[in-house]
Every structure is written in C-alpha cells, then in structure tokens.
Simulated scan of single mutants.
Amino acid sequence: MKKQFSLIITMIFFIFLISIPKTIAQPDPLPPEVNSEAVILIESNSGKVLYTKNAGKEMYPASLTKIATAIYAIEKGNLDEMVTVTKEARSIEGTRVYLDEGEKVTLKKLLQGLLINSGNDAGVAIAQHMSGSEEQFAADLNEYLTSEVGVENTTFANPHGLFDPKHVTTAKDLVKITQYAMKNEVFRELFGTKSLKWDGEAWDTTLYTHHKLMREDPYEGITGGKTGYVDESGFTLATSAKRNNLSLIVITLNSERQSIAYEDTKKLLDYGFDNFKISSFSKGEEFYVTHPVQDQLMYGVSNGEMLNVINDAEKVQGISPLIEMKNKKDDKQYKSLTSNSKEEEDDSSLMASLSIIIVLLLLMVFCFILYKTKLSKENFFKRS
C-alpha cells in the first residue's frame, strides 16, 4: 500500500512540474537571410531600424529617385498649376507616359504619371517647371533633402534616376526620404494608387502601378510602393505596409533579379509584422513626455521588449532617441510595450500556477485521507 501511495505522489509531482506555465524568455527570432546587396527595414512611426544590411553603402537608386522628386514637388509646388511639356521632356528615354511637346497638364497629373507609371518624361517636366532646368532642379533637390529630410550620403543628378555616375544614395537615406514623404497625405495617396485612368493628348490608357505586391501578388497591409531598374543599379524596390497600427518601410537595392527584390521584401515585412508590435501611451494618462504631443505618442518595439522609464536627462531605451518619457508616479517603474502588457501576462501565469498548485494539493490531501481511511480499516479488521 505504501508503494502505491508513493507512486501516486510521484505521478502528481511529475504532472505538477510539466503543468507549470513556462515563463522563461524566448530568444530573439533570427532575422531572415536576404540576397539583395543593400536593404533596410524600419518602423516608420519612430524610424527605429529593425533590420539592416549594407544600408550605408553608396548605391545607384534608379527610379526610387522619383520618391524624392515627388515629395519635393508636392511641398514646394502648386499641384493645380499648369505645366507646359517641353521637347526635352518629350524625348527622354526609358519609361514614359508619352507626354506631347506643348501639352499642358497640371503638376498633380505629372506626379501621378511619375509615381504610378514611373514616367521619366513627367520627371523632366516637373524639374523644368520647378527650377527651370534639370541641373538646377538637382541642386535644389539635394539642398532640400539635406536640410529638410536629413540625408547624409545622397547626391542626385536628375529627377528620374536614369544612370549617372554622380547620381548616388544609400538604403539608409532612401528609407529616410520615404519615411519623410509618407507623412504627407498627397504623397501617400499617389504612392498607394494601384490604377488610374490616364487621358493625355498622345496617350489614353489606364496606368497600373508597377509594384507587384500591390496588384499581381498582393501582400496583406501593403500601402504603397515604387520600383526601379537600370543596368548599373540592378532591381530596386521601395515598399510600405501597415497592420494593426504597425507601419513598416522596406528598401532593397541592387537585386540581381526582380524576383529576389520581392522575395527579400516579403521576408522582411513578415519578419517585422511577426516580431514587432506598436504601443502607445495617450497624453495625460500614465506617462508624460518632455516635448508636446497632440494626441498619442506611438513607437515600435520588439515583442517582450521592456521600456526602462528613467530620468529626463537620460534617453529612453528601445525607442527613438528624440523621445524622452518619464512616469508620473515612479521613475524606476518598468513597463512592457507589447500589445499585451507584461503585467497582464505575469498575472495570468501566476493565477494559472496557483490554480494548478491548489488542485494538486487538494488531490494529495484526498489521496492521503483515502490512504489513512484504508489503513484504519485494515487495522480494524486485524483487531477483529
């Protein structure tokens, strides 16, 4: 009988061990392997870099240049102003929207042709309208990108991205330009347009975005994209996507094949959405910041990453260095920035553990009472 009781206790103890919720932190997931020469993935609300490869290497951007041309024209030009197409714009090589010499179109229509159909002729027309010549436009654009966007290693020689040995940038700068541009509502509309009826003097058609993840191979949450290619640059790709308030931007440069650019982009987007979440603290609730916030402060963090809430003079860990936060009640308090708070996860695990312990203790008590009862009966019959 004693052996049977010992066996029961051993089994109960074993069940207890394997039933306790696992609270050991899992290791960070391995980032994907990508084949493009240079790539970068950021969370666009904060600019936090989630993955990078050769992001500071000087590269040729091809038509990703048009992202910079577009945001410059949107911010510095009048979208309703009429533009007269010149002979130079009409005769430019490469992808076009077939503008006719002397044709008059609005600046906004040129921007549509520039971003949706990657029209090089639209780029030349925009540059000549904005600055008088392509050369002066390049100078104006470079000054704007440096002073207002904050690029560090970008020099553009034209508005469209056709090859020029002096026309260079980096993945880091391109993602910064795209992040900046995505703050503009007009740009977001154009960048995310999948198709558009085009009524021109020389060409009536429907324009379709060249970005395959927006049409032919749709990716969940895609919000915009731009493709590029010249022989010297290889395939280049800019992509934005959003799920559950998490906004991502991916830049891939110099892919040997178009399929590689898309494969790398999908891998990086999957990596971002699978392993990072967005959290926010409303102004006036638990936290305050050292600079004005209109409604909410939002930033991206990895799953399970902890925010160390510290003094105003120090920088907060895990978010943009431009953001400083402090807890109203306790400078030393830690908060989880995952979508499910750490406190809720800990409470849930604790309650589950306590429930299992209580059940197992009751079971042990029941077995002990049963054992004692049976033992008493055996002694009773022996005495009889």
Rank of each mutant, 00 (worst) to 15 (best):
F381D: 11
I319M: 01
I356S: 02
N78Q: 15
N45L: 08
E285V: 13
N120W: 10
F5N: 13
L269A: 02
F156L: 04
Q128V: 00
M130L: 06
I8L: 13
P21H: 07
G161I: 13
L41R: 02
F163I: 05
L237K: 02
K329M: 07
N379V: 12
G113A: 03
D204M: 10
E103Q: 11
N54D: 01
I177S: 01
T236P: 10
A55T: 06
A25W: 13
L110S: 00
K104R: 11
F191R: 04
T84Y: 02
E143P: 00
S341T: 09
K266A: 14
I251D: 01
L162G: 13
T223S: 12
L337C: 07
L107V: 06
A62R: 03
K2G: 15
L350Y: 13
Y72D: 00
V289I: 11
K197R: 08
K109R: 05
S233P: 03
K377W: 09
L99S: 06
R383H: 13
I8D: 09
E81I: 03
I67N: 02
Q26R: 10
I24P: 12
F380Q: 03
Y288I: 14
Y60L: 08
V105R: 03
T338K: 08
A62P: 09
T95M: 05
S91R: 06
I42K: 06
N153A: 12
N303T: 00
I15K: 11
E43R: 04
S233R: 00
D312V: 09
V39P: 09
H210M: 10
I42T: 03
A138V: 01
C367W: 08
P165V: 04
K283F: 10
A157G: 04
A122F: 00
